[in-house]
Amino acid sequence: MPDTNPELQLEVSDLHAHYGESHILHGMNFAVPKGEVVTLLGRNGAGKTTTMKAIMGIVQKRGGSIRFEGQELVGLPSNRIARLGLAYCPEERGIFSSLNVTENILLPPVVKPGGMSLQDIHGLFPRLKERGYSQGTKLSGGEAQMLAIARILRTGASLLLLDEPTEGLAPLIVQQIGDIIRDLKRRGYTILLVEQNFRFAATVADRHFVVENGVVVDWLPNDQIGQSTEKLKKYLGV
């Protein structure tokens, strides 16, 4: 991969990360081109979520380089990273139970101009408008996932990190999430997606990176996923 390419919104090179004493990432290398949907595929414990957390600065013990629009993120606290235009939707969704649905949507501060308005968000997620005054934790799994995604669209962030947005959801809801991701791509968002379900990933993504034991071991463009199914199955252990 080239050193600096203006078309690359995110460049991760030789990224190492530690949780306490344990060394989780062992030199991750990958890049996310502007406007693309890119997935990190891999088994449980491969280091996908840790990669997300290292990019966001939630995991602070990290080495190597993470460049967002040319700016180095390693060394910055997570609040400064968010202000540059990255937004994170965690695997556990992180809906605040002491806030209602609308308060949850309005919580993340606007960091850049050009984010969606509350009206746009309600247009995309009509259920969240109906349930505006419900307590954040009174939602179904699908609604909670919608809320977790909706929440980061207002801020003007251009790179969205979505950690397993389809986990534990019914097939119909998974389809809806797929529609939303494609819609967001059309609106110009760049998306980094963590997935274990490569069949779902294939319906939304432009390229895939395969993660094993804290390193990227392979990558393929989405149009080659058909002939690589067997190889992917082996990587993912399915």
Binding site: S78, N79, R83, P90, S97, S98, L106, L107, P109, T155
Partner: peptide
């Protein structure tokens, strides 16, 4: 208030609130 919502959210999950761009410390 908005400030109060940061406080309530920060009480629940300070890491995530900070990852949204709020200076939690």
């Amino acid at each position: 208030t908005k400030l109060g919502s940061y406080l309530r959210a920060g009480t629940e999950n300070p890491t995530l609130v900070q990852a949204f761009g709020i200076n939690v410390p």
